[in-house]
Nucleic acid binder design. Structure first.
Lengths: 150, 150
DNA sequence: TGACAAACATCAAAGCTTTGATGATGATCG
DNA sequence: CGATCATCATCAAAGCTTTGATGTTTGTCA
């Protein structure tokens, strides 16, 4: 096979992300939320009345994926959706009181995970990590672009 | 909310992993595979006759998740499963010829993504990244452990 | 031998995610 | 004005993933 496992940085990245997801899932679970639901409520808290499509962009998922999350959140009464006043097609989404409460509960615990990660590193190391990840992201995109059989 | 978005390293990690997954998905798609299927075939290529549970551990997913992947691979004739000779309950899984062919096709392209990422960084930077990610992983696990209401 | 723990496989429910396809709405430009 | 394009929402299909619950098989130990 092409590249030895020991040299695949993707494995390390994936491993870390998996650990992060597992920890966040556990952190957010007592609030009755999933990680995507938490992320959605989080964005919503700072952007009341945003559209589903914009929410999808903010969370880096497809509008269809976001629609599923929003449906579940709506069913549980954590968000409300209402048609935009003069902009016919758009549905404005807002947090309900219950939604804000769940978010606050979840965020306290989720933030603790982020905090632990931040505390493990010095400020310089944090910047280093972000810079390295950024370069990886760029390289990945470049490689993907080149592979495209356009 | 607890922690400002600009300080959440998790977001950078997640972003990179998403980009990586998207690129690998595109890379592996012409071979008719998904990323989990590719990962499974890859492990299988180096561990013929492994059990489903062991495969799950190697891929860092639950046995149930692996069962779904294996079912799809079996349905497409890319792997074969047969009961272990003297060990009644275990199903041994092996690549078929078609499976090996799909893997090779997919691996060439997937490796190119990994290679691009590796090429972007110097050897020292690669080690730095792995070390930083490793420390993050450890910190995450520690934090998750502490949060557990045992 | 018989009870028990460990490992394996699997059914089921719930949820997320992607690609593809449709239809509605609003803005732009000829 | 009317065609076109971009944006938004949504239906559908396929696949991955998790938690929880079952049942089988093996090996250990009292």
């Amino acid at each position: 096979m092409g590249m030895p496992v020991s040299e695949r940085l993707g494995i390390d990245i994936r491993r870390t992300e998996q650990e992060l997801m597992a920890a966040k899932r556990a952190a957010v679970d007592p609030a009755g939320l999933t990680v995507p639901q938490y992320a959605t409520l989080f964005v919503l808290a700072g952007n009341a009345g945003i559209s589903g499509a914009a929410l999808a962009r903010a969370c880096n998922v497809t509008p269809q994926a976001m629609a599923v999350v929003l449906k579940n959140l709506t069913d549980r009464g954590l968000v409300e959706r209402a048609p935009h006043r003069w902009h016919g097609n758009v549905l404005e989404t807002r947090l309900t009181e219950a939604g804000r409460a769940a978010l606050e509960l979840a965020d306290a615990r989720a933030s603790a995970i982020e905090q632990a990660m931040a505390d493990e590193l010095t400020a310089a190391e944090r910047e280093q990590l972000r810079a390295l990840l950024g370069r990886c992201t760029a390289a990945i995109q470049r490689a993907a672009e080149e592979q495209r059989p356009s």
